[in-house]
Design a protein around this nucleic acid. Structure first.
Length: 1100
RNA sequence: GGGCCUGUAGCUCAGGUGGUUAGAGCGCUACACUGAUAAUGUAGAGGUCCGUGGUUCGAGUCCACGCAGGCCCA
């Protein structure tokens, strides 16, 4: 059995093969079955919606999920993970409407609700294939066979169960509030929908500062500012801040030039009046003057304005008293506007609240059914009572061409009218952030709507408490973003006036006094039976009865008092659907109680940080209110995936990275590894394909090279790890070192995974592979693999390298599941040591602390540092590594350091091509020492005196240092006191050796003897020659084992001598039978030996 | 306007509890190695640690106020 050797590795192709292997051998299934009976680790999948295509950010989000499920499996847990699909909601409806070319208006007219919902049902899985493909290709292990689907009857029944539980607890109630409403989509918008990215947009609206005439005055007005002039006909009150100071200003209307007195906040005067007009006299004003004089004639507190009555600004619809008065409103500021706020109870949440508090009614008209309704209809048009503007859209909902020079928005028309009537003080364009419907892009109105609410506020404190037990990554999202959200919790508006979704299971009697909430199909059937008995319904529900509209709408129930009961037509917020998944995915409590119990709550979930108030909240709220538990114990809120310049990816801008082509080109492993290693999941990731390439080269390339190196020689030597493991004590220093490093790595990686910090794990693994394993261990030990007998030392080398590679495969498997599986199988498939079919069925390595030798790691570091210093000295002197040198000197200040270096002496000498290492201690008397204060220690003790002490120490002479070392103490005189230094108050290092070439780093100093003796020179020449001949061999296309004969034409004496003395060496290295030095070589090549030329001929 | 995050080399990122020469990889430059070779090693250049104040003997690190970018919410 041989280790597989690869000519060229195609990572994407490798992944395809592994994927095939997983499928054929059902590795995913086995990874769960093999853990049967083991403790469970529960993961909840936040359901994506399959009516859009997946993007590269989904690869990121799902890699995070996958990593911990795989990791926990390796740790021996059974990890069931059910996939899921979010299928209800507005996006689906809008997509269907677009396809059919209809609007909400047409539903029930051009198309029946039943047909419409059938279309939605077909549309929701439109891109399911793409999603499944991505899931597979990226190696995300999740159960796609039996996913939960939110439109399934069983799922919906569980949702109804939960709603009924809430109803039982009295947590469901009907109210009326001002809500964001999209006339274009014909629907109210949830706060979640309003939170969609891109919803708030800077728009330029016509803003009006209107004049509200105070009753009983000649020409005194309140100035109130609004950015929504269309709400002015609905004005019912004005709001002022109790503590704000207001002034009455004598001035003129800039449009009509009529004299007026206006009231506004004192702080706002400067923005409404031009300072240049400050000194103008009121009397001097002439109509049409650009500068309008003004004069403050009175000052008054807001609370003294309260109760003042004013004339209705636009008297289309009357309103009985109390109305058209000044009210105290807590939210008024003087940051913008006039400090006087126009209130329209039907079109603003604050307006509603304040009006309600003061018992002020709303401007309403009667609709056809005689019901009170606002002056703007559901399509966004003024009702007929608003005569001048009847039928006009308050915002551009009819797609009017705004670039038409004759186009005038309704707001502008209102402004013109008010200007003409001397009721407008200032009209200007104002740029502000205003919410837009996230699908229709049209502005949202705040509008009064009936709604069912969940009284989440009743559980606020408990939800906060429970949240404090959740481990959030990052912490700030949990305590900051999510915590603050909980602190400011409002009741959850559950109602949606739509068609495709879970219907609210509430029936009301005709007089609206009796109410039933249905919690299961069985219960529904019982109620239907009662209704049949009462003669309201004709037959029982069909076996496969669909819980969607319109079928549920047709059910008429009977109340306790015998009245007919009709279903409330609302659907519920789709976020409730997804928040219900822990229960509904198992059809709890109707089925699978045990599975549910075992898998609740979740140990781990992960979604984008944008879900904080979405899925994270709905999961938390339902679990907290109904089960008094957290729904998840650990959660990663991952950041966004931006393009390489840090801009948001969008299909529109064309900077979106296609996940499929990325996976196809770079393979899933490099893509995943890059995403995880490059930035913490909770930070935004600037996705750069160059980075993926770099990971592929730097990490996977190095690892693969190391494996290839191992495989090449292990195959030649038939190493299959069949012999006993060689005890660590009998292995070389560098073997024990890399094993020590390996175990340190296992510790670090385990800790990182346990902490849900995959980035730390990935970085630790890649640092080990490239720095320790490849760049140091393999490089220094190459010869052991290809030289000499297959002896114990060689075996030790194979075993060591094998162990490192196999361990890396397991450590990296959660992040790079394909490649690491291949690596594992390539290794274990030959040795059969573990015998697992796949790395994902293996067990995660455990660190053996006995094998971690800190001292050894330290001295290897010394070896690396010393080598690096010698290299740097060679470079400075321009002496090639090929030229051997006689010795290096290392000043030693402690016996321990000396021992440490001695242990790695050979490694150093070999690495830097030097013959000997000599240690210099104090007795040599040549060391020049340098002393530095130990700031950390001295600072703690002497604080403010630090500067003086440091100055003193820096001035200490050699004899002072010697004295300190000898006596272990040294008294120094400061201006006002004397202190005694001990040895650990300073750092003493040897920095210089007079007469030597020296380099140092930290406290380490190395000197290099650069005298090149004849012998060294000759050896150098020999090595140069070997190098040239090897190149020639290569040029000639010779194989490694081909033998040659070398003839060289005699040269100057030193060169001849060099070749003669080192003849054996040269022959061995170049696989030469003979090396002849002749006076004349015919057909020779001229070799450039830098300092001389050599005529050489090589024959096979 | 509020909450949260980010800002360190050209790029991507590290830098417990404050301690005096601020690091790594990539890229760049130079050199080396040539039995891992479309690989590899070593060295070098490259920094206003976003800004301004403050606390401190000492601030990339702590505090305050800003600036820029992002996300979420009004």
């Amino acid at each position: 059995m041989k280790y597989k050797e690869y000519k060229q590795l195609n990572y994407a192709h490798l992944a395809d093969e592994i994927l095939e292997f997983w499928k054929e051998n059902q590795i995913f299934e086995k990874s769960m079955e093999s853990r049967e009976g083991k403790p469970t680790f529960t993961f909840f999948e936040g359901p994506p919606s399959a009516n859009g295509t997946p993007g590269i950010h989904h690869v990121m989000a799902r890699a995070v999920k996958d990593i911990f499920c795989r990791y926990k499996t390796l740790q021996g847990f059974q990890v069931k993970r059910k996939g899921g699909w979010d299928t209800h909601g507005l996006p689906v409806e809008l997509q269907v409407e677009k396809e059919l070319g209809i609007t909400k208006e047409d539903i029930g007219k051009k198309i029946s609700i039943a047909e419409y919902n059938e279309k939605c049902r077909q549309a929701v899985m439109k891109f399911k294939d793409q999603w499944d493909e991505l899931t597979e290709k990226m190696g995300y292990w999740v159960d796609l066979e039996k996913p939960y689907i939110t439109f399934n009857r069983e799922y919906m029944e569980s949702v109804w169960f939960l709603l009924k539980e809430l109803h039982k607890k009295g947590l469901l109630y009907k109210g009326y509030t001002i809500q964001p409403y999209s006339p274009a989509a014909g629907t109210g918008l949830s706060s979640h929908e309003l939170n969609q990215p891109g919803t708030y947009r800077d728009v330029k609206d016509t803003s009006i500062t209107a004049q509200f005439k105070i009753k009983g005055t000649e020409n005194d007005y309140f100035l109130a500012w609004t950015t929504t002039p269309w709400t002015l006909p609905a004005n019912n009150s004005l709001g002022v801040g109790a503590g704000i100071t207001y002034v009455k200003v004598k001035t003129f209307n800039p449009y009509t030039f009529l004299p007026i007195n206006v009231i506004l906040a004192k702080d706002r005067v400067s923005t409404y009046f031009n300072v240049k007009a400050k000194d103008l006299k009121i009397e001097d004003y002439k109509a049409g003057d650009k500068l309008i004089p003004f004069e403050i004639i009175e000052e008054v507190k807001g609370k003294d304005l309260a109760g003042l009555e004013y004339e209705q600004l636009m008297p289309y619809v009357s309103l009985p008293s109390p109305a058209f008065k000044v009210l105290i409103a807590d939210f008024v500021t003087t940051e913008d506007g006039t400090g006087v706020v126009h209130l329209a109870k039907t079109f603003g949440a604050d307006d509603f609240r304040v009006s309600e508090q003061h018992g002020v009614g709303a401007i309403m008209v009667k609709d056809e059914e005689g019901k009170d309704s606002p002056i703007v209809d559901k399509q966004g048009r003024f009702v007929k009572e608003i005569t001048d503007f009847s039928g006009m859209y308050v915002k551009n909902y009819n797609g009017a061409d705004e670039s038409d020079p004759n186009y005038k928005s309704t707001d502008v028309l209102i402004a013109i009218k008010l200007k003409e009537e001397n009721k407008a003080f200032k009209v200007e364009k104002y740029e502000h952030s205003y919410p837009h419907c996230w699908r229709t892009d049209k502005p949202v109105l705040y509008y009064p709507l009936d709604s069912w609410f969940i009284k989440t506020t009743a559980f606020k404190d408990r939800l906060v408490e429970l949240n404090n037990t959740i481990n959030w990554k990052p912490k700030s999202t949990g305590i900051g973003r999510f915590g603050n959200w909980l602190e400011n919790l409002v009741d959850w508006n559950l109602s949606r006036s739509r068609y495709w979704g879970t219907p609210l299971p509430i029936w009301l009697s005709e007089d609206k006094k009796e109410e039933k909430c249905i919690g299961s199909l069985e219960e529904l059937r019982e109620e239907v039976q009662k209704s049949i008995d009462a003669g309201f319904m004709e037959e029982q529900l069909a076996e496969d009865f669909d819980l969607h509209r319109p079928y549920v709408d047709d059910i008429v129930l009977v109340s306790e008092s015998g009245q007919k009961m009709y279903r409330e037509l609302d659907l519920i917020d789709v976020w409730f659907d997804s928040g219900a998944m822990p229960y509904a995915q198992w059809h709890y409590p109707f089925e699978n109680q045990e599975v549910f119990e075992e898998n609740y709550p979740a140990d781990f979930i992960a979604e984008g940080v944008d879900q904080t108030r979405g899925w994270f909240f709905t999961l938390h709220a339902i679990a907290g209110m109904l089960f008094d538990k957290v729904a998840f114990k650990n959660v990663i809120a991952n950041g966004l995936v931006l393009d390489k310049n840090g801009n948001k990816m969008s299909k529109r801008l064309g900077n979106a990275v296609d996940p499929f082509s990325t996976l196809a080109k770079y393979g899933p492993d490099a893509t995943r590894w890059y995403m995880i290693a490059n930035a913490n999941p909770w930070d935004n990731l600037k996705f750069n394909l160059d980075g993926v390439l770099e990971v592929q080269r730097r990490f996977f390339g190095t690892l693969q090279n190391t494996y290839s190196f191992f495989a090449l020689y292990a195959n030649l030597d038939h190493f299959t790890f069949s012999q006993e493991e060689i005890p660590m004590a009998e292995r070389t220093e560098s073997d024990r070192w890399i094993i020590s490093k390996l175990n340190s790595l296992v510790e670090e990686a385990t800790a990182a995974y346990e902490d849900y910090s995959p980035t730390r794990a990935a970085r630790a693994i890649q640092d080990f592979v490239s720095d320790d394993l490849s760049n140091w261990y393999v490089r220094l030990n190459r010869k052991r693999f290809w030289k000499g007998e297959y002896n114990e030392d060689k075996q030790a080398a194979y075993q060591t390298l094998y162990t490192c590679l196999l361990t890396v495969a397991k450590l990296g498997a959660p992040i790079a599941p394909f490649y690491m599986d291949q690596l594992y199988k390539d290794l274990d498939g030959v040795s059969k040591q573990e015998g697992f079919e796949s790395v994902h069925l293996a067990t995660f390595p455990k660190a053996d602390s006995n094998l971690i030798d800190v001292d050894l790691e330290e001295r290897m570091q010394l070896a690396q540092d010393i080598s690096s210093l010698v290299h740097s000295l060679r470079r400075k002197e321009k002496i090639k590594v090929r030229q051997p040198l006689s010795k290096i000197l290392v000043p030693i200040l402690s016996e321990k350091t000396k021992k440490q270096i001695q242990a790695v002496e050979d490694l150093i000498l070999n690495e830097v091509n030097v013959k000997d290492i000599e240690y210099l201690d104090d007795t040599s008397g040549v060391l020049v020492k340098k002393i530095k204060p130990n700031f950390r220690k001295l600072g703690k003790e002497y604080g403010p005196k630090m500067k003086e002490i440091a100055a003193f120490i820096n001035k200490m002479e050699q004899e002072d240092i010697t004295l300190l070392e000898k006596e272990q103490k040294f008294a120094i005189q400061l201006t006002d006191t004397t202190i005694e230094l001990s040895l650990d108050d300073v750092e003493i290092s040897s920095e210089d050796i007079p007469g030597w070439l020296v380099a140092n780093e930290g406290t380490l100093t190395v000197a290099l003897d650069i005298t090149i003796s004849d012998t060294l020179r000759k050896e150098g020449i020999a090595r140069e020659l070997v190098n040239r001949i090897q190149n020639l061999r290569k040029d000639m296309g010779l194989d490694v084992q081909d033998k040659i004969q070398i003839s060289i034409q005699q040269n100057e004496e030193l060169v001849n001598a060099a070749l003669n003395v080192n003849k054996d060496y040269i022959c061995t290295e170049t696989q030469a039978h003979s090396l002849e030095l002749l006076s004349e070589v015919s057909g020779a090549q001229e070799l450039d030996m830098d300092e001389f030329k050599l005529l050489v001929k090589i024959e096979q």
